[in-house]
Design a protein around this nucleic acid. Sequence first.
DNA 1: TCTCTCACG
DNA 2: ACGTACGTGAGAGAC
Length: 291
Amino acid sequence: MLTLKDVHPIIDKILNYREITKLKSTYVDALPKMVNPVTQRVHTTFRQTIAATGRLSSDNPNLQNIPIRTERGQQIRKAFIPRNNDFVLISADYSQIELRLVAAMSGDESMLDAFKNNIDIHTATAAKVYGVELKDVTKEMRYKAKSVNFGIIYGQGAFGLAQNIGVTRTEAKNIIDNYFLQFPKIKDYMNGNIKFAKEQGYVKTIMGRRRYLRDINSKNFTVRGFAERNAINSPVQGSAADLIKLAMIDIHTEFKKHNLKSKMTLQVHDELVFDAHKSELEIIKPIIQQK
DNA sequence: TCTCTCACG
DNA sequence: ACGTACGTGAGAGAC
């Protein structure tokens, strides 16, 4: 796809400048000012009543958006270290929790099969959508299938997919149509959520958390469209939030039971970070992994 | 105080 | 013809 980057060298310079200034102002300059003088650490506030889906949010400072995607970002992340040499930071994250929930809640056999057999989900999706064997899935096919899998969770349409992966709207529509042909129960599940919302005025997560959608029957196409995408996405994102919250309670209970020095320090939506005492690694690893 | 932009999942 | 992928928080700059 032709983009402005190809038209003038200044485009890359501008983007590079923005990356650097963002990282400097938001992290390098700001975080040291927020170190608590007593504890010598930064302490976030986790908020439980902000996100409409049931996720936590983090502010002052936000520790759920510490950079990682670029090389410079990774350098910044390295500034976060355990409390002393007797401790290490441990990070545990769920693999594809939202897609696994879609598979589970929809009951779609194809997708459940892929997860049960531990097949890379984007490769499995590509094989289905393009009608080829797993071994014949190309990088290009996997890349596009990955984008579809993400888009599906958000209620993305052909226009958005086309723009995202640089194909025509016609091709994008074909891909999406084929996706729902191959995963019919996912389509049923999403339409079911929209229908439920239109009748009840809300959608709910696996644990019964509700999100009310007052615009779901709006006559305005754009407004209604937003609510319909919320009806698709909220049960998925919110159920993932439910699950990690339950895991956090269990882990905290177990840590208490064993009188551990290790501490659960951060939650980043599908990831938990621990400041773990080296002598306790063998105890806590199974506790964390099992949840 | 608002908008734009961009950091993360 | 229209608008078009979910959820957040924060800094810069305009007003």
